[in-house]
């Protein structure tokens, strides 16, 4: 690609990202309701951990402050990561609207990825910060010691969004072959709610389950950014953690592209 074309493409996807951000920004009442829900659930989870830690100083390398911080950070980024209930592409497949998207001079996957990144920035700021602040007022939470950690955390969240998007993209594309794509989606949601470390930190998992879970892409969605926030990984370990996320993002996006190519072939030959 020439420099000019690269520049044009970059400005297109930047514009798409902006619109992804603004789409969600129009629904203020929904944002407020979401913040309340995320905060309330944060407290529910926090009190369970407070009970768990009475009599223990350390579980899986986490003390109570780590765990409470883990809880409120994960409550805060959960909407940015968007683990649940995104069916926009699948609905487009059902309605046939996907045909119009296919007939535009855009990269279909990048177009949706750009939109999703824009959305995630909105959700990270407006759904993420308020629950964390409320949590910090009620409990002793651990803030990053190094200023750079904030930047690494933001980067790690967005890499987590890329991994999450790549998986959601594939689940949505399954609508090209499966009548009941929601079934697949529901199973996947259950899988990544558990294996992302959202339900309980992966560090609490026993032995082999923990080892395996830490290598799966689901950990890259949520556990990694939270651990970056907790400064569990620093220096080379931090670079390795980010590379782990980026690696999964690239692999899963590539698999998504293969699926997209197969879906396009199906539409083009069989008419969808």
């Amino acid at each position: 690609m020439s420099a000019r074309a690269t520049c044009d493409a970059a400005s297109l996807y930047w514009q798409v990202g902006l619109r992804g951000f603004r789409r969600y920004a129009t629904y203020r009442a929904a944002t407020f309701a979401g913040v309340v829900t995320n905060t309330v659930f944060g407290f529910l989870r926090a009190y369970v951990f407070v009970a768990l830690f009475s009599g223990h100083a350390d579980v899986g390398g986490y003390d109570l402050s780590d765990t409470l911080t883990y809880t409120f950070v994960s409550q805060g980024i959960i909407m940015a990561i968007f683990l649940w209930g995104w069916w926009e592409i699948a609905l487009g497949v059902r309605s046939g609207a996907v045909v119009t998207d296919f007939s535009r001079p855009i990269d279909y996957q990048f177009y949706w990825l750009a939109q999703d990144l824009g959305r995630s920035v909105y959700h990270l700021i407006f759904r993420g910060i308020p629950p964390f602040i409320v949590g910090a007022l009620a409990f002793h939470l651990r803030f990053p010691q190094h200023p750079w950690t904030w930047l690494a955390f933001a980067l790690s969240v967005e890499l987590g969004v890329c991994v999450s998007f790549a998986l959601r993209f594939m689940v949505n594309l399954s609508a090209f072959w499966l009548l009941d794509y929601r079934g697949v989606g529901t199973i996947m949601q259950a899988v990544w709610t558990f294996f992302s470390g959202f339900a309980i930190p992966i560090a609490f998992f026993p032995g082999a389950l923990r080892t395996v879970s830490e290598m799966l892409p689901f950990a890259a969605m949520l556990a990694t950014p939270v651990n970056v926030f907790l400064e569990k990984a620093q220096g080379l370990d931090l670079a390795a953690a980010l590379a782990f996320q980026a690696g999964w993002a690239v692999v899963l996006l590539l698999v998504g592209r293969l699926m997209l190519a197969a879906a396009t072939r199906k539409v083009v030959i069989q008419g969808g």
Binding site: S11, L12, Q15, R19, R22, T26, A97, R104
Partner: peptide, 26 residues
């Protein structure tokens, strides 16, 4: 292309936003 049964515009955003994006797409 125009489809009477469905829109190609960004549902949640002002009409202008859909128009402006087309400048970048095409």
């Amino acid at each position: 292309m125009v489809f009477g049964q469905r829109t190609q515009l960004w549902w949640d955003l002002p009409l202008r936003d859909s128009f402006d994006l087309l400048r970048y797409i095409y």
